[in-house]
Design a protein around this nucleic acid. Structure first.
Ligand SMILES: [Mg+2]
Length: 224
DNA sequence: GCGACAG
DNA sequence: ATCTTGTCGC
């Protein structure tokens, strides 16, 4: 699957769907399976191949339950603000392959911290009707005060006088993460989940693992 | 018009 | 995101 839309058509869809996004407290303590989602790219013969990785991670034992990789052509270009139209197709393929449905999805990108409050995590959560959290490595929009340099420090991310996310220092002295609700969750619960999934690195474990796994180069089918 | 700009 | 080896700071 792949969307064949113009940028303006995609924007119209976002303006139509963002109203369905719901921000609400999430039962953090009852969550056990967090699915890390990320996509890497490479080119084949002029065509762009996307490799979507999804990893179900058990939050209590902190172990991987299962991981899937979907490899397919991606046609929608990268346009700031329209990332979901490029990454959702391959991500849905990978998620379809999972044996177990996760309780919540952790996505590499923004949730509502988006010009139209409809980033990748929000779009994916709405499609799946599942709670999602956006965790980006850099900012798309908004203003904030730099969090103190020790791990755990955080500051709200604002846009037009409303909080759209939280800037979280996941490691001492390292660049902070930009956490925002995707769908069916609120700021506090989103940050709580992120903190519970952090390990020894800057990225939450489910995302760090998905990022690495997405870079796998599957063996090709022998021509015969 | 100019600068910013997830992955 | 991707192209890529050594190098600097903690
Ligand atoms: Mg990514």
């Amino acid at each position: 699957m792949n969307w064949n839309l113009s940028a303006s058509e995609a924007i119209n869809i976002q303006q139509k769907l963002f109203r369905e996004v719901e921000l609400c407290p999430c039962a953090v303590e009852s969550i056990s399976i967090v699915c890390g989602c990320d996509v890497s790219y490479r080119t084949n013969n002029g065509q762009i191949i996307g490799q979507a990785a999804v990893i179900n991670w058990e939050i209590r034992e902190r172990v991987v339950l299962e991981q899937k990789l979907a490899v397919q052509e991606v046609v929608f270009p990268y346009i700031p603000g329209l990332l979901s139209f490029r990454e959702i197709p391959p991500l849905l393929s990978a998620l379809d392959a999972l044996e177990e449905t996760p309780h919540i999805l952790l996505v590499d990108g923004q949730g509502i911290a988006h010009p139209r409050r409809f980033g990748l995590a929000s779009h994916l959560g709405l499609v799946l009707q599942k709670p999602t959290i956006g965790c980006a490595k850099s900012k798309l929009i908004g203003t904030y005060n730099e969090p103190a340099r020790q791990k755990g420090s955080m500051e709200p991310l604002f846009h037009k006088n409303e909080q759209i996310g939280t800037v979280v220092r996941s490691r001492d002295k390292k660049k902070p993460l930009f956490v925002s609700p995707g769908h069916l969750i609120d700021h506090g619960s989103a940050v709580a989940i992120i903190l519970k999934t952090l390990g020894k690195y800057r990225l939450p474990e489910p995302l760090r693992l998905a990022h690495h796994f997405s870079r796998n180069r599957p063996a090709e089918n022998s021509t015969r």
